[in-house]
């Protein structure tokens, strides 16, 4: 999987969750908009924040905090919605704050070190280096793949087999 990262440069959409910085491949990002009230879906996973109406289209919103097992968002702080189009269809990722669009040159990002716990890097596809910071690039498809976890209301840590991380930048 690692040798697949061959794209010379990669544009990513970076955002904040708590104190951490994450990023997703920009080519999957369709638009970014302010959070709107959504309708909770009973019996779904806790990551599923609910359904919202985006100009007549019904879109599922996934709270990335829940999805990544980061502490629940403080009440009153409205998240930002990122509409992505993954292989699982359109969905919305809720993040705390949008950081920036970053262009990463090939030397700026590398595969996730094998030493990381497979459960920990479940959604990671690569890590990238900022000036003096190391961040992870998240895999849009893995984040959106709630199959098997949708009926499981456990938070974050789902007892699932680790997936093959998706190849970032693979066309």
């Amino acid at each position: 999987m690692n040798q697949n990262i061959v794209d010379p440069s990669l544009q990513v959409c970076a955002f904040r969750l708590g104190t951490d910085l994450f990023a997703i491949d920009l080519k999957f990002v369709q638009e970014v908009f302010r959070y709107q009230e959504c309708t909770p879906v009973p019996l779904s996973s806790r990551s599923v924040k609910g359904l919202l109406n985006l100009r007549g289209q019904i879109v599922m919103a996934i709270d990335l905090r829940e999805r990544l097992g980061i502490a629940t968002r403080v009440e009153g702080k409205t998240p930002i919605s990122i509409l992505v189009r993954s292989q699982n269809g359109a969905m919305c990722f809720l993040v705390d704050e949008l950081f920036d669009i970053i262009t990463l040159e090939s030397e700026q990002y590398e595969p996730i070190p094998e030493t990381l716990d497979s459960e920990e890097r479940r959604h990671d596809s690569a890590c990238f280096k900022l000036e003096n910071d190391l961040r992870t690039l998240l895999d849009v498809h893995s984040l959106g793949d709630l199959e098997g976890s949708v009926l499981n209301s456990q938070v974050g840590k789902l007892n699932r087999l680790p997936r093959q991380p998706h190849e970032a930048g693979a066309t």
Partner: peptide
């Protein structure tokens, strides 16, 4: 519904 939610029979 989004296919992910399609598995909820109710």
């Amino acid at each position: 519904l989004h296919p992910v939610l399609g598995s909820i029979p109710q």
